[in-house]
Nucleic acid binder design. Sequence first.
DNA 1: TGCTATTATTTAGCTTTGCTAACTAAATGT
DNA 2: ACATTTAGTTAGCAAAGCTAAATAATAGCA
Lengths: 145, 145
Amino acid sequence: MPKPQATDRIEIADRLHSAAIHLLRRLRRVDEATKLSAPKLSALSVLVFSGPKRLGELADAEQVRPATMSRLVKELESDGLLERSRHESDGRVVTLKATQPAVKLLKQGRGERVKLLASWMKELSREELKSLERAVDSIDRLGDS
Amino acid sequence: MPKPQATDRIEIADRLHSAAIHLLRRLRRVDEATKLSAPKLSALSVLVFSGPKRLGELADAEQVRPATMSRLVKELESDGLLERSRHESDGRVVTLKATQPAVKLLKQGRGERVKLLASWMKELSREELKSLERAVDSIDRLGDS
DNA sequence: TGCTATTATTTAGCTTTGCTAACTAAATGT
DNA sequence: ACATTTAGTTAGCAAAGCTAAATAATAGCA
């Protein structure tokens, strides 16, 4: 019984890479309906489910540069989905907080993209769903170190 | 022992969505080294591992519009990584074939992004790797129907 | 205290990769 | 022959990533 070799890992890595690309491309199609693109939904999701954050923290959490997050935040703000406020003691930091409409959108609607993805998952067998559930955490930790 | 509920699926879908976004963002950082972005590597990978394709087929496989694939192909061609040729009997179709340098790059080097991803996977336990291997196929089939 | 360095965010400008719409060229069918 | 369909390309736009440079506030230190 062979142990996992480097080539196995590379094979799996290759398929994971393609699968991630394909999955996000398929999900992109729902964007018009939601009005929220993947990066915006993902960032807003952090604010809704983990509470207020400063801009730099959110950029870190989302693996983008502060400059990129600044633009996303500006657009989410003008959509009324989050509020910027200045920190009381440190005037440099901007604190971001999801608004009620955003909480409603994400908590109740949970996002059109996520609902669509969840509906696709109905096709999976019980075992496939179990594997997927276990794998998701591994995937999200990949490259953390 | 409860069966998987809709809320479980939505929870997993939400985490899968975030995990896929985060994974691809982390991988993007290696692009400078490779000179091949995710969409190009993914498209080229199809040609190398599944053989020549017409442009429309490749666009379908990659879940993008022909117009988008046409541009990617043009750039890959000017990098010497694939060759366009006209179909013998049907003058409308363009057949795409990976060149030797491309085969070498992907088969031997297997792409910097994939190598990096594979190296991250060393941190996973045997069990996590197994779950991931099983899950990858499910992920890639999601939304196929 | 007062200068200097650091830190947080923003702005400007560029690149890549999606898209749609409109075009060309070739094949098909009536 | 002529209209329609099919395959691919081109043009032009938007979103989201980046870096570099600007701004503003804080912190450190002589």
